[in-house]
């Protein structure tokens, strides 16, 4: 009996399976690579950029790409490559902190709402519905339009806007897990709510939360860049990507690269994050939630 049981083979290890599966999805590999490069650049950027992002050189205005200026220069003769790199740090810190805020708050509210249920859940979720009934960009615009677009305000607004989405995802997972029988088994042995919430439920919430967080991050970049374009992003002289694109429109006929390089960089990052998020979904939620 013993040897028959142990002789039964265990399915090939999860990791090697995942890698095999990933090979069939080139988009995911592209996503991971792109995000990896962006993170690397954001970290080492200041050490490799030859120019400061606000160093003006009026004798070298609107130059095309060259060995000295990889992405060319803008209307003030500033090095676009340096500005794009510096901007990527801003994007990571602002969109990243906003996402983190949304994830932490959404996790807390979603766990509380899902676990407690009843009136608390009803009130919280109704409030979330109300927030969701206002298009995010609209709400961001009217808030930032009144309080002013400082770095902190943008982070707070992005975080605040995406709390409902995260909270809903977390809540639905908690509601599902809560009814599983292993939770009842825990109650049968007299576990307290803390153990059930943090040791039984939380580990099961984390995989879908990671997927949701990566999606929120891509939407945050989208939102921050759009706000920048509308003039509600980080104010000059900070090199905000959206703002750079907006200003470069004036010079498009003379010097399209001033617009194209920042725009292309935004596109690459957003696409990379979206592909990564999709890859995470495939790895962490096999056969799971779609959409």
């Amino acid at each position: 009996m013993q040897n028959i049981l142990t002789a039964r083979q265990i399915p090939a290890s999860r990791i090697s399976r995942t890698i095999k599966r990933l090979r069939r999805y080139p988009a995911t590999l592209i996503g991971f690579t792109l995000v990896g490069i962006f993170i690397l650049m954001a970290i080492i950027g200041p050490w490799i950029t030859p120019y400061g992002f606000s160093d003006q050189d009026l004798s070298n205005r609107l130059q095309p790409a060259s060995a000295e200026h990889w992405f060319g220069t803008d209307q003030f003769g500033r090095d676009i490559f340096s500005r794009v790199l510096a901007g990527s740090r801003d994007v990571f810190t602002i969109a990243g902190s906003g996402t983190l805020l949304a994830v932490l708050m959404g996790l807390t509210l979603g766990m509380v709402s899902g676990y407690l249920g009843g009136a608390a859940d009803e009130i919280l979720m109704r409030f979330m519905d109300v927030l969701l009934s206002i298009p995010p960009l609209l709400l961001a615009m009217i808030i930032l339009g009144t309080v002013g677009p400082s770095r902190l305000n943008i982070v707070l607004v992005v975080g605040f806007l995406y709390i409902p989405m995260v909270a809903r995802v977390v809540r639905s997972v908690v509601l599902d897990i809560k009814t599983r029988e292993f939770i009842e088994a825990a109650k049968m042995r007299g576990e307290n709510s803390g153990y059930i919430l943090f040791r039984e439920i939380l580990p099961n919430v984390l995989p879908p939360l990671a997927v949701e967080a990566s999606m929120r991050f891509s939407y945050s970049i989208f939102l921050v860049a759009s706000l920048g374009f509308l003039g509600l992003g980080v104010q000059p002289p900070s090199p905000d990507w959206g703002m750079m694109v907006s200003e470069a429109r004036t010079w498009y006929n003379q010097a399209p690269w001033v617009l194209l390089y920042p725009a292309g960089t935004i596109a690459l990052l957003v696409v990379g994050v979206a592909f990564t998020s999709d890859g995470l979904r495939r790895m962490l939620l096999p056969g799971g939630v779609s959409g």
């Binding site: 599983r180 029988e181 292993f182 009842e184 007299g190 039984e200 580990p203």
Partner: peptide, 19 residues
Amino acid sequence: LKKIQLVFQNPDASLNPQH
């Protein structure tokens, strides 16, 4: 609690997949 225990119908749902 110690005196009453229960075995559930669905073994997939009765064990925490993360433990």
